[in-house]
Design a protein around this nucleic acid. Structure first.
Lengths: 300, 300
DNA sequence: GTCAATAGATTGTCCAAGACAAATGAACAT
DNA sequence: ATGTTCATTTGTCTTGGACAATCTATTGAC
């Protein structure tokens, strides 16, 4: 594997890979006849695990010297200890379907639960715990790339289907959903959109990776009331805060910003007209708050 | 703008940006107090246009010396000259909605056309021409990033909704949809999936950017009959051919490969059990062919 | 003991200039 | 038209050095 492939697969930049080699003597790629680095697959695997630990907040100096078994020991200590409720059992069985590649049954089960619970309950009680289970497996390397992607795809299908079927309500806020340029995960923002659509909000999604200036301009032009953005666990929280600050300066003050996602958990950021969501269950309240505050203002 | 931001926004690598500066004296970024490059926004804009021309097959030596007006002249000559049929007029009006940011009306119109025409006709007669119109605007820089993303999002919603509602048929092939690691556009493969679902095929999508070995392993484990991959215009066709060759060696011979997309137009690749699609209308025939060939074999 | 400031170590990103293979285009021969 | 050869173009990789931003540990004041 060439250095560019490793960069793509692990998300670790070429410069970083080279400087790690110089400083920590890992990775130690072979060389081809030209002196170019060739990474064997076991080192790439180890790099993938390291990447996940760094996302969890570990420091390179600590983890780069560890071998694979020590890394896995560390991973175990970082697994979320979820309580084993009845709900949790259902989610586990869904993840089991995923790992057995039974895509049809998985899809049908998701569909069934959605129909039974309704969109909001489906998100909060099924998707959220399932996400954390999948996240744990993923961190521990017990999920392959196709499995992880299949999960995302299936959920996208179900959620987009549901969003598409909802009706909107004129007295509700106009909300713009998107992510910042370094965030490529779409599931988080899709979940928030689903919650808001259920509240009757007028929702528009731009998908992922939009430059800050473009978001601001679009929100202003479209007279949106709120811009909602999400940050996955892979987004370094210091960057999230920096980017939110910059965005708040770019975006006209009366437009609210709603921010959420794993990168912001237990973070408190005080910026004008910014709400940080620590739990997706808080979304309906936010919409309700908005309604109470602006009902008169908008009809006037 | 720092060099890393330019890389993200234009898709041109840091090394390439530096070597262009050395060789062609463009771009010519300012420097901060440390000597780091700072790209002004007009140069980034010019780079974006250049990138699109390179995707169309132009060579750097030719285009890097041109100024913005000359670049636009070149772009005009690369616009597809579509005939102005009645169908085309409808697509134009949809794109107009997109450019006016009327997301609600756009969504409703798409929904309406889909309901009227059915999924296959919707794809071939509306989505395909709309794609080429959007592509033209995009190439010429007359579409902003949010507009382009909104387009993708809305279509995804509509198409995923439709795919989700279809039933499958046991006598049809099991098809796996995905893209190679360097291809991040999902609309193409989604369109193919839509065509196949309409034919009753058992479809599973892994989304974009899956390593070749993972695709091969997943397809084998799941006993898929076909792996379908798509290549957008941004995928250099030489790479597409190279990657397809490598993939054909990785994937067990009895599993067919269906490949398509702008990068393969007018290319002929002969590999065992590989079909290159030049037009999405050919998809139903492929499924039909498969049925005729394997009907007996599978039930036996 | 708790908190804040300071000093020191860690870490990612950028720079420069050179090198080379793979792809391309042009000139030529079949 | 089609294939072959040769020069040019072009992207990607190399090394080693540099520095700001962040994190950590120590010190000192309360």
């Amino acid at each position: 594997m060439r250095i560019a492939d490793v960069e793509r697969d692990t998300g670790i930049g070429k410069d970083t890979l080279r400087v790690w080699e110089r400083r920590y003597h890992f990775p130690r790629p072979h060389r081809d006849t030209l002196g170019d680095r060739l990474y064997p697959s076991d080192q790439v695997e180890r790099l993938r695990v390291i990447r996940r630990l760094l996302d969890k907040g570990m420091r390179p100096g600590k983890v780069l010297s560890l071998d694979l078994s020590q890394l896995h020991l560390l991973l175990d200590s970082h697994t979320t200890n979820t309580v084993d409720t009845g709900r949790h059992a259902i989610c586990l069985s869904l993840v089991k379907l995923l790992r057995m590649h039974r895509s049809r049954e998985l899809k049908d089960s998701l569909k069934h639960i959605l129909d039974r619970d309704g969109l909001q309950k489906f998100i909060t009680d099924t998707v959220v715990p399932m996400n954390s289970i999948v996240g744990d497996y993923w961190i521990r390397g017990e999920l392959t790339i196709p499995e992880e992607h299949l999960y995302t795809e299936q959920l996208q299908n179900v959620i987009r289907h549901a969003i598409h079927s909802q009706e909107t309500d004129v007295s509700a806020p106009r909300i713009l959903f998107t992510t910042f340029p370094d965030e490529e995960h779409c599931l988080g923002i899709l979940m928030v959109e689903a919650m808001c659509v259920s509240e009757g909000a007028h929702c528009t999604s731009l998908g992922t990776r939009i430059p800050l200036t473009d978001i601001a301009k679009y929100a202003l032009d479209g007279r949106y009331d709120v811009v909602a953005v999400s940050f996955s666990a892979a987004y370094p929280s210091r960057n999230a805060i920096r980017d939110l600050k910059q965005f708040r300066e770019l975006l006209a003050a009366p437009i609210a910003i709603w921010a959420g996602g794993a990168a912001l958990n237990q973070k408190r950021i005080s910026l004008p007209n910014l709400s940080v969501l620590t739990n997706i269950k808080g979304v309906p309240d936010l919409v309700m708050d908005w309604r109470n505050r602006y009902r008169g203002a908008k009809s006037a």
